[in-house]
Design a protein around this nucleic acid. Structure first.
Lengths: 221, 221
DNA sequence: TAGATTGTTAATCGATTAACAATC
DNA sequence: TAGATTGTTAATCGATTAACAATC
């Protein structure tokens, strides 16, 4: 166990480990090696061992990792051994999808309030929640100990919403709007904009449009 | 302009550039410098210049980049100067959200068919499309020149759906299910699973649970 | 004991950033 | 000409992978 700064790449792999470990747990597999994890998750076993070793000596030489124990440890590292309250801003299609998805992921992150700017949507139901007016956002965040904000509003409104969330004391934001949010350094922002994923995917489509024989690898044209 | 292999990190930034350039274009700004782009997109100007230089000499020394010209070039690099057909598998909440979102992004990637395994959903409408039975997936993909598959089914079904898409000749997959898909190396797969983003976000929440004074940076405990 | 597998160091690989000549 | 900004090389930084002693 070392005392280095943990890189974002490492942190992003932790939920992936956790997901598969939960799978193993359900199937009552009690032990797993970095080798097997690597195989299933398309990762280098040495990388997995190194990632985990940043946080502690969780494995046993010659044996591997105890599945339940490792789950517990990763959940602790990710702060998931407590309930984390989140708020959703934007009661559109995506907002609906997310609040339903919420039921799926049983990982202690709970959407406890939904807001929308549109007066016509205020008062309507989303899953078990009632859409609230933006006026109430600050009070709700403070009153209900809400720490994560999820933004699913159109891109032009995203920064404005982020500012309100930050003013109200939110600590982290998951931003689905296709825009780069500006925020103080102590606010953590993750971009969840799938248009970037989709457009970059198009790059890899193999086009027979190049003059020379195309070997499937992209080069300059 | 060099003939190196382009890294995935570079490719993923291209849509981000494109998005902001489109913004500038709408505001009738005709020229932009790497400096200004860097400021707006939270990227190093040298990195932006280097990224673009992989594909050609698009800028002018002392001047910067012509916005319209750069848009055209990036769209070409990303294969967006042609219509790319995509198929959506999974007519749930997320599927609904995506097919509506589709209208937003005017970037030539078009969802032209929707499939669902559930017979009750087959025949229903999503946006302008009618949900089709999975039996028809192969014929539709081949017949309509569909090149990208978008998976929004529950995780247990995702691999099965991916296999069908691949057999039918799809070239790339955007996977919203929280699972690592196995596929041949020539199939490009991008993970768009936001649970990973959300759970990793929780890591950065500042917990006053450490014994020593917490400076806001994460270390081992 | 022999085989397996961790934790960790060292080596490698790749990506980002700084610096600057070229030039608009 | 002077100021601005590119394209590109070199330097730096960081992340991944290989290798192996420790040990179950």
């Amino acid at each position: 166990m070392k005392s280095e700064k943990i890189s974002e790449a490492v942190v992003r792999r932790l939920p992936v480990y956790l997901r598969y470990l939960n799978d193993l747990n359900k199937r009552e597999v009690s032990t797993v090696s970095s080798q097997e994890l690597g195989l299933k998750l398309d990762l280098n076993p040495a990388q997995i061992r190194k990632d985990l070793a940043y946080f502690g000596d969780f494995g046993r030489k010659g044996i591997g990792y105890d599945v339940s124990y490792l789950i517990e440890k990763i959940r602790h590292i990710l702060n998931l051994d407590q309930q984390i309250n989140a708020v959703l801003v934007g009661a559109g299609n995506l907002g609906h999808a997310l609040s339903n998805y919420n039921l799926y992921l049983r990982e202690n992150i709970k959407i406890v309030a939904v807001f929308d700017e549109n007066p016509k949507k205020v008062g309507s139901r989303i899953s078990t929640l009632t859409v609230q007016s933006m006026d109430e956002i600050s009070d709700t965040i403070k009153g209900q100990n809400i720490r994560i904000g999820i933004i699913t509003v159109p891109d032009v409104e995203a920064q404005n919403v982020a500012d309100k969330l930050i003013t109200a004391g939110i600590e982290a934001i998951l931003n689905f709007a296709p825009t780069i949010l500006k925020a103080p350094a102590n606010i953590r922002i993750h971009a969840a904009d799938f248009t970037t994923d989709l457009l970059s995917l198009a790059y890899y489509l193999d086009n027979g449009k190049d003059d020379s024989a195309d070997d499937g690898e992209h080069k300059d044209k």
